[in-house]
Design a protein around this nucleic acid. Structure first.
Lengths: 139, 139
DNA sequence: TGTCATACAGACCAAAAGGTAACCATGGCC
DNA sequence: GGCCATGGTTACCTTTTGGTCTGTATGACA
């Protein structure tokens, strides 16, 4: 992603998708919402992802200002990654995606294959989920 | 995308992203929200996309049940693509993405590069946008 | 018979995204 | 000097995605 900012789509929805649709970005962000995390911590939290790709995704999110990187010059070195305000503003959107994904799985009888969005709020409290549900099953 | 259903991610948010993050899916869906469209119509509405890729995206959305394909055996043949209920339930989510994308551009002073989400509702009426805004600029 | 419009299909290619495995730099500590 | 941990980088490969260009089936109609 050379010159990433220059290449973001001009349609807002596509821009948003481009920014968050990376293979691991949602889960990483999700763990950063809890608290700042060190690289080694993130590796333990998401063991399926290789270190190179993890750093790659973090760098992209840093460029898009979803994530902040702080270096503490210690021995051994310490680097903290945390969610910026812009990154946090994505939480309701990710929640909407999560709820819609669950609804979609439900419609196709695949809920059993799903894993929970864990600490994210429940469906009923999310206005987007309500809107989507209203479309699926009108009163 | 062979066996597309078998391969959808097990995390709901990732599942949702996988389903809608295709290069042209948002715009296609957006045009289908208006009314059913014929292939030739869609080609005119989104001239940048090649026919093969257009069909590809439509087929994937059909498999994920966002889109319905109806064949009318006429001469010349006629095929209508339309948004299913499941496809329509995505509208609030796309709207949320659109609003967030605009906010993101605003934060980075790139709004001028953006194009409008046209007939989609305005920011102020969208609860997700409100939530995201509240995070960015707390009262 | 040839041409037309519509909707597709297939061969092939290019770029992007994701992934593996190996290596490097720092500085404390034994 | 050799080893440790942390947080990287680099070279290389595979898969996925998007794209071009060409071919095809149908049946009306001139």
């Amino acid at each position: 992603m050379a010159d990433p900012m220059k290449r973001l789509p001009i349609l807002p929805a596509e821009r948003a998708l481009k920014i968050i649709a990376g293979r691991w970005k949602a889960i990483i962000l999700y763990h950063l919402y809890d608290r700042p995390r060190r690289l080694s911590e993130l590796r333990k939290l998401v063991p399926e992802i290789s270190q190179k790709v993890l750093i790659q995704q973090l760098r992209e999110m840093e460029e898009h200002q979803l994530v902040r990187r702080e270096i503490f010059r210690q021995v051994p070195p310490r680097v903290d990654y945390s969610a910026t305000t812009l990154g946090r503003s994505l939480e309701p959107v990710l929640l909407a995606l999560c709820d819609w994904g669950r609804m979609h799985a439900a419609e196709l009888d695949e809920v059993d294959r799903l894993v929970d969005c864990a600490r994210l709020e429940r469906t009923t409290s999310n206005p987007i989920a309500k809107a989507a549900e209203a479309i699926l099953s009108p009163a």
